[in-house]
Design a protein around this nucleic acid. Structure first.
Lengths: 249, 249
DNA sequence: TTTTTTATTGCAAAAAACTGCAAATATTAA
DNA sequence: TTAATATTTGCAGTTTTTTGCAATAAAAAA
């Protein structure tokens, strides 16, 4: 393995998890700790990451959006986002919803991909600005303080004016029988508008949310085209979804 | 777990609850009290929190926020924002433009103030979400990657539908004779729309930009109601503006 | 006051970083 | 091609950093 490849792998790891341990590098890339250390040292000198005792952390670690540091079940969400990424086609028109799982999808978009991307989430929009070839359109409206997304009639009206190839959405709760539900009425109305505007719907959802429900209903399961969890599609937790008209990934 | 991660976790905790106990850190991060104490001591030395007997407390508000570290002439901008703050009336409808000076204004808004606040800047919107009594409306549209604001026809149309008590705007360049100018055509068109939608216009501008100009014109000086710089109004650099119909602060 | 909790200090074990060196590999020149 | 040169890599020994523990001091609470 070439040095450049090794260093790129290290950078990817840091970008993905905000951190990396020297011991993990050494083991994963099958080199000595010393080589790993030297690689990290070089990358630090080039200002591509920050070397710390025992490993390295991403440059934005302290300055970046504080949310990323304490995302619950980050690894699972990254896994889901990686699966979702494969569904995105060059030059298509997509929407990325709010929530931490969808945010990971935005982060993972490769810088070479050409896309037109709508969103109503502030953090997702911030992330998309870093993608040189993604044209980003923010769907404006009244901002929800906790969800950090635009909601309300203005947002819904704007959504009614567009036609999306794919929408990647999250949900508060999901149940095979009751479908997708939320705690918040405004958010449900906004999601309904997204659903109406989309040709294909992809639900990103960590397995922990399976078989949970709340007050207000967004839609039925069969309105979703693809549901992505971090589990393999034949996992027993997904069995109740198998009978439905839905693709599991 | 890396030391930096531990310290970041501590900072998050402090930011979230304004305080943290050493015993809680030790338990949560699974380290000895001594290590927790040492971490807190380091963070205190770096002025990232304040160590007190038994734990740590936050340094107060508006101390550590993302991106703040590499703002040019931050002190001057804060001074300008403080002056601008006095112009904002309870329960009014205002717009805060993009740019680092306007961002400081958003940061400085007291949490008790009741406002309806429009913006087309992503960072400003992020900041406004932290203000419990500010209703924030993001004016959507195509996002400009470098200015991090919404621009384009959609944005301009949305702006034509609202009526603002005060707009706080920045500018790339300003000259007493040529007026406000910008490098970017789209940004100029958007600013024109803001101007049209506003009853009163306040320009936030560090003195360094005085007597500079660029390609595209936003408006004449006399269209601005109030211009705020970090200088006192009778500073000689402002003399060329005195003859104009403009209030200097 | 006494009692309890928290801080400080010094110390030792463990982990990680650094240094110099030699073997292995790659690059360049003849 | 071969030989000379430069770079990369792993290893061993040394130094530094980190961490937890225990003894003592200081502070807060009862």
């Amino acid at each position: 393995m070439l040095k450049e490849e090794r260093q790129q792998t290290i950078l990817n790891e840091v970008e993905l998890h905000n951190r990396v341990l020297l011991t993990d590098i050494a083991e994963k890339l099958d080199v000595s700790i010393d080589t790993a250390r030297r690689d990290v040292k070089e990358l630090d000198a080039e200002n591509r990451l920050r070397k710390v005792h025992g490993g390295a952390i991403s440059l934005g670690f302290a300055t970046y959006s504080p949310k990323r540091n304490n995302v619950y079940a980050l690894d699972e969400k990254i896994e889901i986002a990686e699966k979702a990424l494969k569904l995105i086609k060059e030059n298509s028109v997509v929407l990325i919803d709010g929530g931490t799982t969808c945010l990971e999808l935005a982060r993972l978009l490769p810088s070479k991909i050409h896309l037109t991307c709508f969103t109503l989430s502030l953090p997702v929009a911030m992330e998309l600005l870093n993608k040189p070839n993604v044209e980003t359109i923010f769907i404006g409206g009244q901002l929800s303080k906790d969800a950090q997304i635009a909601v309300g009639s203005h947002t819904i009206h704007n959504l009614s004016q567009i036609r999306l190839d794919h929408s990647f959405i999250g949900t508060g709760y999901v149940d095979a029988n009751f479908g997708l539900t939320e705690f918040d009425w405004d958010i449900v109305q906004t999601k309904k508008a997204i659903i109406k505007a989309s040709k294909k719907l992809v639900l990103l959802c960590i397995s922990e949310k399976l078989n949970s429900q709340h007050r207000f209903k967004t839609c039925d399961i069969n309105e979703i085209d693809t549901m992505i969890t971090e589990l393999s599609p034949d996992h027993h937790l997904l069995s109740s979804f198998k009978s439905q008209e839905i693709r599991l990934l």
